[in-house]
């Protein structure tokens, strides 16, 4: 990478550090540019309203610095500045008890539990389906079209229906208490979104061993179980983690959309909706950042597990 910093550092540090720096440097610059644009836009987008205030109060000749400060400190800004968003994030996590509805941690926990449960259900279902499909030709021909067809239903659009009906079924006929019922109905949407990439990826992965390798297992007189655990399963690991990452990115969407309608009071989605009802822009942005952090943490966690698994299987770093 042709960046001055990298060349400069190459003289002093070892290759690894330099490599990380040269990789991070462009990202940092782009991030800085985004923040700069953000602040400029925050002034620009809040300016019309501020001018209105000045005109009504007959205030003229406002100094530019005062104008900038005023646009930033508005109660309900059109676009809040970054430091206000992170201030709100700090206020609603560190300064509030985590079990209060005012705390974002409380809402994040609700969304996280639905996401994690749904992701777990979806991945297990996806893996089981893939195992069935790979081992049984009849299953392959009858399940695969069904799996593909299942994704033509816009499930996020069905979310209100599933949440309401699932909640009623679980609390009514099955006698589940309200909180787990709400959790499971949201998790179902997450599971529906995340099982598809896992199933498709795992089918590919379990089929990735070549004929010559399968033949070798055959010459060893390996049972189907042995072939599965010693050849197919390890060979499918890269595919599994690639598709798990797609699935884990899709599952918070399911949980958040499941929290939108139907008077949910807890969860990041409910927080977003409440913020939008009362025009609490700073609150919306804080919830949005929290949701992004949640999604990023989940993806990173899957990546970490991938590394551990690769290491324990003795894979060489790529």
């Amino acid at each position: 990478m042709a960046c001055g910093l990298g060349i400069l550092m190459r003289r002093r540090f070892d290759g690894a550090v330099c490599n990380a720096m040269t990789r991070a440097f462009p990202i940092l610059i782009v991030l800085l540019a985004i923040v700069a644009v953000w602040y400029a836009a925050a002034i620009g987008m809040n300016a019309p309203w501020q001018n209105d205030v000045y005109r009504r109060g007959d205030i003229t000749n406002v100094p530019a610095t005062q104008f900038v400060l005023d646009t930033r400190n508005r109660e309900k800004p059109v676009l809040p500045t970054a430091h206000r968003v992170f201030g709100e994030l700090w206020n609603s996590t560190a300064l509030v008890a985590p079990n209060k509805p005012r705390s974002l941690l409380f809402h994040a926990r609700v969304t996280f539990s639905a996401t994690a449960l749904g992701f777990a259900m979806g991945s297990v279902l996806g893996i089981l389906l893939a195992v069935l499909i790979v081992h049984n030709e009849a299953m392959n021909r009858s399940l695969m079209p069904r799996i593909v067809a299942s994704q033509t239903i816009p499930i996020s659009a069905l979310a209100p229906l599933i949440v309401v009906i699932g909640f009623n079924i679980f609390t009514g006929t099955l006698g589940v208490p309200t909180d787990p019922a709400r959790l499971i109905s949201k998790a179902i949407i997450s599971a529906y979104l995340s099982f598809f990439p896992v199933a498709v990826g795992m089918v590919k992965g379990l089929r990735s061993p070549e004929a010559i390798q399968l033949d070798l297992m055959h010459t060893y007189n390996a049972s189907p179980g042995q072939t599965f655990w010693k050849l197919r399963w390890p060979a499918a690991m890269p595919f599994l983690f690639a598709s798990l990452k797609v699935g884990v990115a899709a599952s918070p969407v399911g949980a958040i959309v499941g929290e939108l309608p139907t008077g949910a009071v807890a969860g990041l989605g409910a927080r977003l909706l409440a913020g939008s009802y009362y025009s609490q822009t700073v609150q919306i942005w804080a919830a949005l950042v929290a949701a992004s952090i949640l999604a990023a943490v989940l993806v990173l966690a899957v990546g970490l597990v991938e590394r551990l698994v690769n290491k324990s299987m003795g894979a060489r770093p790529a």
């Binding site: 990478m1 939008s276 919830a287 992004s292």
Partner: peptide, 27 residues
């Protein structure tokens, strides 16, 4: 330079629940 700066961000953003920006856009 821009490629190595924007692409990781692009990959990262694809993993985010973008639906969340809906209330802001409505506003």
């Amino acid at each position: 330079f821009l490629k190595s700066g924007l692409l990781p961000l692009g990959n990262f953003v694809s993993a985010l629940p973008i639906v969340g920006v809906a209330p802001i856009m409505v506003m």
